[in-house]
Amino acid sequence: MSAAKEGVFGIMDMYLNEFETSLESTGCNQEGHNDATWKMYLERRSIVLAFLRTNLSLHLLKCHQKRIELLKKSSFYIEILPKHLALGGQNHLMLPTAMFQLIDPWRFQRMKKVGTTQTKIQFLLLTDLLEQLERGREELVYYLETCDVVTFLSRWDLIKQRLSNLSELMDSFLDMLVPGKLYVKHRLVPDVRATKVPHIGLVLSTKMPVVFDRKESVAHEDWATLKWFSTSQQSQHEQYELCFRLLEHGMQKERGHCGILTVTSNTCKIQNLLCDRAYKFTIRRAETYSLVYEQWHDSITLKTETNPDQDMDSSLCEPEG
């Protein structure tokens, strides 16, 4: 959500607060309207206000925007499910990894491409749905702010339909946040083995991004300690790839000062670095056979400390003034 939109929504929230306060403090009906009309007006405006404060609040829209951004930084994988199991069941976690060996490799690679496409479409749909919800909020606030009693009541059927549409949009948005099944047109297991293996279904799953611990990751003279974490549940043998690269090149021999380390824990110590140099470190999960989408990797830049002995040597070599 852009800063401009946040500013607009902030003004809207201020207006809603002021308007709700004015409604509560109103002790008599508006001039020119009978009690029944005024009561109906207050009740229906209260419905819209309640909807804006619960289903379509600024805080909620901001949270949804952050969830989309987090999803775009996440890793997406294909998981195997027997089709007779519900998606919410946990039995699929017990399937042996050997199941992948029964699947036709070419067909599985094709399904990975489908999974990548489906993930990208999911992001586009989520962004579009969120924009529709934001526009819907603006529209409802416009009705509250500009319509008098007669106009508001005359448009109530339209407003009520808009509330219903926005509720459906929100439901669609929430459903879209969770990756779903992949449509399998053909059997993934070759016909030769099909008699012994049940029909296989595929589902997309996500793992939250791996990010560096900025407080615990530090550089020293010629070594650095890196630490990272993820909010996803980590498997016992999950592997990570830690890359490091020298950003400042001095002498020719420094140009190849980089590397990739495979790590099975969430911390690593890199030694034999150059003193007083800036390094860029990047962390990611090691690529697996079932990975279909991963576009973002966290990185951090650290500078090693100066070697005190080098400083002393350089000061001894300085010419006298």
Score class of each variant (00 low, 15 high):
Asp128Arg: 05
Ser164Gly: 09
Leu226Pro: 00
Pro209Arg: 01
Leu102Phe: 04
Arg284Val: 10
Phe9Asp: 11
Arg44Lys: 08
Trp106Tyr: 14
Asp104Val: 03
Asp148Glu: 12
Met40Thr: 12
Lys160Ala: 13
Thr282Arg: 11
His297Gly: 04
Tyr289Glu: 05
Asn55Gln: 13
Glu221Ile: 12
Ser230Asn: 00
Gly136Arg: 06
Gln233Lys: 07
Lys215His: 13
Leu52Arg: 01
Val48Thr: 13
Glu20Phe: 03
Leu302Thr: 01
Val150Phe: 06
Leu144Thr: 05
Glu238Asp: 10
Arg45Phe: 00
Gly136Val: 06
Val48Ser: 13
Gln30Cys: 10
Glu131Pro: 00
Glu69Lys: 07
Asn17Thr: 14
Thr151Val: 15
Arg193Gln: 15
His257Asn: 12
Leu246Pro: 00
Glu69Phe: 01
Ser299Ala: 14
Lys39Ala: 11
Asn34Met: 10
Cys147Ser: 11
Glu320Asn: 07
Arg284Gly: 05
Glu145Arg: 12
Leu226Arg: 03
Thr288Ala: 08
Phe108Leu: 15
Glu79Phe: 01
Leu302Asn: 07
Leu124Tyr: 08
Asn266Thr: 15
Ser290Thr: 11
Asp191Arg: 09
Phe108Gln: 03
Asp309Arg: 05
His186Gln: 10
Ile11Thr: 10
Pro308Met: 09
His59Phe: 12
Met170Ser: 02
Phe281Cys: 15
Glu216Gln: 12
Glu134Ala: 03
Ala98Cys: 07
Arg67Val: 06
Met1Ile: 12
Ser172Thr: 02
Tyr293Phe: 12
Leu274His: 04
His92Leu: 02
Ser290Val: 08
Leu174Met: 08
Pro190Phe: 06
Thr119Ala: 02
Glu241Phe: 00
Thr119Met: 04
Cys63Phe: 00
Ser57His: 04
Asn34Lys: 07
Glu241Gln: 09
Lys120Gln: 13
Leu93Lys: 06
Leu302Trp: 02
Arg255Asn: 09
Ser75His: 02
Thr116Gly: 03
Pro105Phe: 00
His237Lys: 06
Glu139Pro: 03
Leu163Gln: 02
Phe9Met: 15
Pro190Trp: 11
Lys227Asn: 13
Gln118Pro: 03
Cys28Met: 04
Lys66Glu: 13
Gln271Pro: 08
His257Cys: 13
Lys83Ser: 12
Met1Val: 11
Glu305Tyr: 01
Asp276Gly: 02
Arg137Gln: 05
Leu16His: 03
Arg110Phe: 12
Phe100Cys: 00
Val114His: 03
His186Lys: 09
Asp191Cys: 05
Phe281Arg: 15
Thr151Asn: 06
Arg44Ser: 04
Thr117Trp: 06
Ala286Ile: 05
Thr301Cys: 07
Gln90Ala: 15
Val263Cys: 13
Cys275Ile: 05
